[in-house]
Design a protein around this nucleic acid. Structure first.
Length: 590
RNA sequence: GCACCCAUAGCUCAGCUGGAUAGAGCGCUGCCCUCCGAAGGCAGAGGCCUCAGGUUCGAAUCCUGAUGGGUGCACCA
């Protein structure tokens, strides 16, 4: 239950850092009110953080240093005054001024431990916050062309986007997962013709797959299905008889395939947006008119790219978007010289649609090979929303596959590219997801099939899952009640060993970590945190080898219960973190 | 030629809105199972945070430039 101290701070221990920061800010406010500090100081840069070196105390604040300049005061003077006031709070054991003006805080005995019951009470909701304030965020990811099954590259984008979505949801945003279906362009004709060839094949004809068609086996079933549906009606008929119909049925079939692939990964989209729906409905025209109304559309001729002049380059007048007015390097064509839309035009209309649907924030997850489109897309969103809707584009770098330490060769030409299904079938959904998040999105990722399945600390998935399972193992051997309600009542003040406090402290970091991860749109931070948390847990476990008094199971209940409460809290945080990553915790490793 | 991303231990990589003595895993050296799961843990060695300037009380972190690597560069999506 929240308890109020004299300053009115919530004391439910959900986030000790936030709580102490509030105390610092309120104290600074009081100092300003009494004229010790000037009024109206900008307190945004004041932080309360764990010091790098634990010997410096439990928390450190930079308040005095940040405020020294704007307050026109000596940082030491601010530090001394602030320090004296903070020391009177019953949660603070001691404050010391260090270095150029750091305040190192030591919390009163039992303060850290306070967080454990509140973790148990909150369960896997511990760390959930309202930092997003219900803002509507749209995350577009995967968006692979509906012309084939998803491959490893898509897998990384899919896992990243899905985990980011869960993370932002946990942080209090109203999140929509969205897939943009590129069903409007020429590649759908290619798909339809390829399916048509498979259809002829299903009728017993010998067919060849010329360049510019998709020879993949996955279209055999689609051709067969077409035969089952229309019989021989399209055999040896000209394109204008069947193309329209085959386009539709083929994209539907391929979308079903893609949805099944995503389902195998545990990814479910909230919204599927069809590019085709933008054509012939005035949507593209509307978006371009919106730009035109801002004077950003004109007829013009682009300069040839320098240093790499295409052989067949010739100057052409086109309809251009003045993206340079919003940070792009050159203006971009929206109509081809024959009057048709470029691919960029429906993309503009699509993002216009997202803006009109009322999103406060847009996120696009692309492959790194689309890095060249970031500026123009941001320019379009900036122009269409008058700079009010931020667009963050997250680029996912390549995944390099290894097997037995050897690079796993992929060749699209030979049709041997590795599919999402191959990866999931080989190592499972959970391992695939976790491994995809063990690297920053903009760093290349090495994925080794063997290491992913290895049961050792080399394998971070295993290591984290193992910690979770070990907690269950202890619980099942306990001879006292281990339900959460009982554990939450345990007296945690006996947990004083540094290894125990290290684990408590790591658990206490969880809410801050989540905020950072959500703010920076970097879900990989969760994977690294879980590894660290598991590490602290394993370390404490092994302390029990040499120091029996640190073992979780003790002879008397009063010594056992708080220890079980501690590891239960640890387990809950691991469970919450894995939940955000979309990984199912394992109750036992066998 | 231009734009974007990257450069941290021998290797693969973390590093929070700029904070104190820069971290982890692998590999290397030496330890720890009559004990809750050794599928683990502890300790040691290993660094000019690519280089040069700048901003700052303070820079791996921000800015500029250089070097080295990746990606993309008229109407293809």
């Amino acid at each position: 239950m929240p308890v109020l101290n004299r300053a009115g701070t919530r004391r439910d221990a959900m986030n000790l850092f936030a709580e102490i920061k509030t105390l610092v800010l309120e104290t600074l406010g009081a100092m300003a009110a009494e004229g010790v500090l000037p009024e109206g100081l900008d307190l945004r840069n004041v932080s309360v953080e764990p010091p790098r070196d634990p010997s410096h105390g439990d928390m450190a604040t930079n308040a005095a240093m940040v405020l020294a300049k704007p307050a026109k005061m000596n940082p030491r003077a601010i530090a001394d005054e602030l320090s004296a006031r903070l020391a009177t709070d019953d949660r603070i054991a001691s404050v010391e001024v260090a270095g150029p003006g750091f305040l190192n805080l030591r919390l009163a005995a039992g303060q850290w431990q306070r967080i454990i019951p509140s973790v148990i009470a909150a369960g896997t909701d511990f760390g959930r916050s309202d930092m997003g304030g219900g803002e509507k965020v749209n995350i577009e990811f995967v968006s692979a062309n509906p012309t084939g099954p998803l491959h490893v590259g898509h897998t990384r984008g899919a896992v990243f986007g899905d985990a980011l979505a869960s993370l932002l949801d946990f942080a209090g945003y109203d999140v929509t997962r969205e897939y943009y279906i590129n069903d409007g362009g020429g590649q759908v004709d290619v798909l339809a013709r390829s399916v048509y060839l498979r259809y002829l094949e299903a009728h017993g004809q010998k067919v060849a797959f010329p360049d510019g068609t998709y020879p993949g086996d996955y279209l055999i079933a689609v051709g067969q299905a077409l035969k089952d549906r229309v019989g021989d009606a399209y055999v040896d008929q000209p394109e204008d008889v069947w193309l329209q119909d085959v386009r539709l049925s083929s994209t539907d079939a391929l979308l079903d395939l893609i949805k099944a692939d995503l389902a195998a990964l545990g990814v479910t989209m909230d919204h599927w947006f069809s590019e085709k729906s933008l054509y012939g409905t005035g949507r593209i025209e509307d978006a371009l008119k919106a730009l035109d109304d801002k004077g950003l559309i004109y007829q013009g001729t682009l300069e040839p790219p320098k240093g790499k002049l295409p052989e067949d380059w010739e100057a052409r007048e086109q309809t251009l978007f003045r993206s340079t007015a919003h940070g792009d390097d050159v203006d971009r064509p929206v109509r081809k010289s024959d009057g048709a839309w470029t691919y960029f035009a429906p993309d503009i209309a699509y993002h216009y649609d997202k803006i009109e649907r009322g999103y406060d924030q847009l996120i696009d997850v692309f492959g790194a090979d689309h890095g060249g489109y970031v500026k123009r897309m941001k320019a379009a969103v900036s122009a269409l929303s008058d700079g009010k809707v931020p667009l963050d584009v997250k680029l996912c770098q390549l995944v390099k596959l290894y097997k037995n330490g050897e690079p796993f060769k992929m060749s699209k030409r030979a049709g041997t590219f590795v599919l999402l299904r191959d990866v999931v079938n080989e190592v499972g959904r959970d391992v695939t997801r976790f491994m995809m998040l063990t690297r920053k999105n903009d760093a290349p990722l090495d994925f080794d099939f063997d290491k992913a399945l290895e049961q050792s600390k080399d394998n971070p998935v295993f290591y984290v899952q193992y910690a979770y399972a070990r907690v269950n193992s202890v619980m099942s051997k306990a001879e006292i009640a281990t339900d959460d309600a009982t554990l939450a009542k345990a007296d945690l003040s006996i947990l004083t060993h540094e290894a125990e406090l290290a684990l408590v402290g790591k658990i206490a970091e969880w809410p801050r970590l989540l905020e950072t991860a959500a703010r920076t749109h970097e879900p990989h931070r969760i994977a690294f945190y879980l590894y660290d948390l598991a590490s602290d847990f394993h370390a404490l476990w092994n302390r029990g080898n040499d120091a029996p008094e640190l073992r979780f199971l003790q002879d008397d209940a009063a010594a056992t219960a708080p220890r079980l409460a501690l590891i239960r809290a640890c387990q809950l945080v691991i469970g919450a973190g894995l939940g955000i990553l979309g990984v199912t915790p394992m109750n036992e490793m066998r």
